[in-house]
Design a protein around this nucleic acid. Structure first.
Lengths: 232, 232
DNA sequence: TCTCAAATGTGAACGACGTCAACATGAGGC
DNA sequence: GCCTCATGTTGACGTCGTTCACATTTGAGA
């Protein structure tokens, strides 16, 4: 959860980079296979869930199916997750981890500043377009009913913080208006998130190849919304 | 569906105002009640679905429960809808009807122009905040897998057109930049939609009363994104 | 090396759900 | 008054998430 009313109490010095994201990676998955005792079933379950969601959508995710693909009883899952919801939470958590990495890479890779801001926005939309079902698990309300768990909250908050940090840096450089950073960040996140949702929701049909261009346009407009009158 | 590549082929002269929206209205529901033959079961089913969604969320919607509340068999629904998905489509369609009305009222009520734009944006977010579950049915991917049906498509497109028309008018008044109207509209819709999703998604926790203020802030930033440099 | 408790996987079963097919009932035109 | 069609009911099926009692393996301590 992001608390907008905690603007002055946030601390930005405790960011820790997570381990490598396993999203989309088929995963080794063979350590010791002896009928019983899978080895690392928990991670395998998450990976398989991600794979199924990616190919068939969230609604097609079935515990029985996940178990079958892993040659494991359908109830083995309950030794690692409280229920199906908990599995989805784990999926979302992994998604946020990879997502945060993409955002940070874009920001750093483009050399921060205005270009970094633009790159970060485009990376956001690209992530959603390339992982629509996964993105929906993260933001579509399948999760986060309040019972989301601390790890998910921390991970999504960390992703948000990448954006907040960037905005603060841009403010200090005089490029972005000096509104409360979290207020600004919520606007930016919302705008890009909305564009992403529309892009993957089927609500807006575009000619092929256009998602990239549309994303660029969106980010340009967002920049106009937050830039100072001084900055070009 | 909104086709961005049809910018030059859209026609804006065939708008027809729909009948009064029945969203949230408990509905009379008693015409001729004789155990068999409900009278107007189709509308009653939609109304009950809306009521259940409003109080318990989309996931809690059960055909058996809907039937029970209406003192009707659980399968009576199949005389009026192909399946559960079709019922959700009907719900979304009604949502879009009411939604469009809110947007149009805000735009007209504030006297169009810049104030109308702001009012329309705030009305959008207010609708989402006041009808979060309903809003999720409309935009959360429960519908619109491509099998959404013509009526839903027309209704949602009509809502979108309210925004497009407003933007075109603002362009002609020299208040909004002269980008392709649909490109602009997709950005604006996306930005406000994203803010609405974040507001109702539990991802952003705000102090009470803030949704209105946050909506106002979002709409101000959107205006900065689309206004001409000439307009104040 | 042996033992035994804890961790992990299995199988059968339950209730709820969406959906279907066969049947029952009522309304309205002839 | 009859007949047809729209509309509502009943019973059943298959799938789902979940639970419970049980089986198997692991690993720490003797």
């Amino acid at each position: 959860m992001f608390h907008v009313d905690r603007v002055n109490t946030w601390r930005y010095d405790d960011i820790v980079m997570p381990g490598p994201a396993t999203v989309a990676a088929p995963a080794p998955e063979r350590k010791r296979r002896n009928a019983y005792h899978h080895g690392n079933l928990r991670q395998a379950l998450v990976d398989q869930a991600v794979r199924t969601i990616r190919t068939d959508g969230v609604d097609a995710l079935t515990l029985r199916d996940v178990g079958a693909h892993l040659r494991v009883s359908r109830t083995a899952l309950y030794r690692h997750f409280a229920d199906k919801q908990a599995l989805l939470v784990a999926v979302a958590t992994e998604g946020f981890r990879a997502f945060r990495k993409e955002l940070a890479n874009a920001w750093e890779g483009a050399g921060r500043g205005r270009a970094g801001f633009m790159a970060q926005g485009r990376a956001y939309i690209r992530f959603a377009v390339e992982n629509p079902s996964h993105y929906r698990v993260m933001f579509g309300g399948y999760v986060a009913k309040g019972d989301c768990g601390a790890e998910l909250a921390a991970e999504s908050e960390a992703g948000f913080r990448v954006l907040v940090d960037a905005l603060i840096e841009l403010q200090q450089a005089g490029l972005v208006r000096r509104d409360p950073p979290l207020e600004l960040a919520v606007f930016v996140w919302g705008a890009v998130h909305g564009a992403a949702m529309l892009a993957i929701g089927g609500q807006v049909v575009r000619p092929d190849g256009a998602p990239e261009a549309a994303a660029a346009y969106t980010v340009e407009r967002v920049w106009d919304a937050v830039k100072t009158t001084a900055s070009r």
